[in-house]
Simulated scan of single mutants.
Amino acid sequence: METIDDRRVRYLFEAVTSGSVRAAADKMDMNPSVVSRQIAQLESELAITLIERHGRGVKPTDAGEMLIDYYRQHQSHQSDLVIKLGELRGLARGHIDLVLGEGFVSDLMAEPLQSFWVKYPGLTIKMNLAGTNDVLRQVTDDLAHIGLVYNPPITPSIRSRAAVRQPMCAIVPPDHPLTKLERQPLLKHVAAYPLALMHGSYGTRQVIALAEQMDRIRLTPKLTTDSITVVKRFVMAGMGIGLLPEFAVTQEVDAGDLVALQIDHPLLAGVEAHIVTRLGRQLPTAANQLLLQLISTMRAFKDSRQRSKGVRQ
């Protein structure tokens, strides 16, 4: 065949991303037989199997994956075209998809978004919170224009637009014994106190695990969570300490409620915060303006000489 029916490809996409034909049908508000028939028709037209059915749903074949990637890129290009057409009206309207780790939220809300919306009040932003791995996935799959991520692994499809060293810190109350040390705390000092750590899908926990291996120290967290807010509340309640980069607690440090102590460890001292986009994707003007705003105004992307005085180095 000379053309591919994009409407039928959408049925395939929804079935695979939803996990089953029935789930796709529910999402599209139609009968499952319609979805199944459209996929079968597409397989017939292309003369190749696109999905494999199993007890819990469907998964794509190699050919199915190719069509799903095609559909994602097609939707991304279409979305970018709509935005660019809007940009001809002077950025009076438009939408940006942003995905980030929770640790960036207080930094982002402190000034960057306020300043951005003063300049471009007609633009809208969708903000998703995710762990490191999911941030990279959403950017790679064009579900987000921009990602903010801490300690990301090297990923061929990802382009880093800014990378700034943001050491891992021990987050403690102002009167904690670690603040009385005459030196930066070592990992063994941290291990002596009850800890709150993030789940393993987060960049903070992944780099901590590597540091544990290097020092042959095993940290046993009293609390494991997927919420940085929970870690901060744990520390402020006097239940123990947390391990986070300083920018995740900027408001609390500025208010004097918490102190961020840089840990004396070569690996933890060299961790970076990144702003990322998909390699090869040309951002719409609105998204590019937001990217420039974040790089120039977020504390997470200032070097160590420009950081808060609440961080003890």
Rank of each mutant, 00 (worst) to 15 (best):
L136E: 10
H176C: 03
L91G: 00
S18T: 09
I295Y: 01
S76K: 11
Q138D: 13
R305A: 15
L279D: 10
E52S: 13
I241A: 05
Q213W: 01
L91F: 11
D107G: 09
R137M: 08
S79P: 00
A269P: 01
H274F: 06
S308T: 15
P60F: 08
G256R: 04
K27L: 15
G270E: 12
Y120T: 12
Y150D: 02
I4K: 02
G94W: 01
N151S: 12
Q251F: 04
G242E: 04
G240Y: 01
A209E: 14
D264C: 03
E2S: 13
L279C: 05
H265W: 07
A273S: 15
D26G: 00
L113P: 12
N133V: 09
F234Y: 15
K27R: 14
T204A: 11
E2T: 08
Q251N: 14
P185I: 08
T297N: 08
R22P: 00
M109T: 13
S157Q: 15
V207Q: 01
D254G: 03
L283M: 09
M30Q: 09
G19W: 04
G280P: 08
I96T: 07
V230M: 13
E246K: 04
P112A: 13
D97V: 04
L113D: 04
Y120M: 10
K302I: 00
D215W: 03
R7C: 10
L46F: 02
D6S: 14
P194Q: 09
L186T: 14
A110H: 12
Y150V: 06
G64L: 04
P174W: 09
Q166L: 10
Q213D: 11
D97A: 14
G101R: 01
L46M: 10
A110Y: 07
G256L: 08
S20P: 02
R299G: 15
P60E: 04
M198R: 10
E246R: 06
